[in-house]
């Protein structure tokens, strides 16, 4: 194994980020240094506007890095090409605050989209894999429902299935349990935690949910664009 591959999956050093131009420029992240270990469930907490989501999108290849360095799975994201960013995104899973399901696709088809991004070489296995993960999340009888016919919690579980079906190396989640009832929310996080133990999937999650904080391996507290407390 090469030295870089044995390193932590996420290494952030000297990261600064600002929004706006000129006099309207507002800095939201100040000199962030953080390393996240493989297979662990890390949560980001803090008041709104503290920069949690900005940090998440920078680590998740969704925003261009202005200053500092993010090494994701051994790959430097600062100044990386679109091609590299695209390839990196395929190795990640995202669970958004809103479910962001495609309204014209059934639950199964939505989950399948998480697999099709990897090409069509194994396409005949895709439906089986998507069905399997939906069954695990208790949606075995809702495979062919359009999102409009699903409850908020069910939609969010489909979104979780879509993020996990491609066996991502890192999962980024932004308040995924906001729309879930207590049991389902804990179940989803439980699956993430089990994936971490079984496959070494790393999870970074923004949350306010105290039930989840109890399950977290590590909690990063942010305030005014700085990490103020690490446990």
């Amino acid at each position: 194994m090469t030295p870089s591959a044995s390193q932590d999956p996420i290494v952030v050093t000297g990261l600064n980020h600002s929004f706006g131009q000129g006099s309207a420029k507002v800095q939201t992240l100040f000199d962030i240094h953080v390393q996240i270990k493989r297979g662990k469930l890390t949560t980001l907490i803090g008041p709104s506007g503290s920069g949690k989501t900005t940090l998440l999108t920078l680590m998740g290849c969704l925003r261009e890095i202005q200053e500092g360095s993010v090494r994701l799975l051994g790959e430097e994201l600062f100044g990386a090409s679109n091609e590299t960013l695209n390839n990196m995104r395929r190795r990640l899973g995202f669970i958004f605050q809103a479910h962001n399901l495609h309204e014209s696709l059934t639950a199964l088809q939505n989950v399948r989209m998480g697999l099709e991004v990897h090409g069509s070489a194994h396409r005949h296995e895709y439906d089986a894999a998507a069905t399997h993960i939906l069954e695990q999340l208790g949606l075995g009888d809702r495979l062919h429902y359009l999102p409009a016919k699903l409850s908020g919690g069910q939609k969010q579980r489909v979104a979780v299935a879509r993020a996990l079906v491609g066996n991502p190396e890192i999962v980024f989640a932004d308040e995924p349990t906001a729309a879930l009832d207590r049991d389902t929310g804990l179940k989803a996080v439980g699956i993430l935690k089990r994936l971490g133990e079984l496959r070494g999937t790393t999870t970074v999650m923004v949350t306010h949910d105290h039930r989840i904080l109890e399950m977290a391996d590590r909690i990063l507290r942010m305030e005014d664009g700085r990490i103020v407390d690490q446990t």
Binding site: G60, N87, R89, R90, F94, F96, N100, H102, M113, G114
Partner: peptide, 15 residues
């Protein structure tokens, strides 16, 4: 109408 869905697909790594 589907910009947010497309953005989701972009985030998932679709080119």
């Amino acid at each position: 109408d589907h910009l947010s869905e497309y953005a989701t697909f972009k985030a998932m790594g679709y080119k």
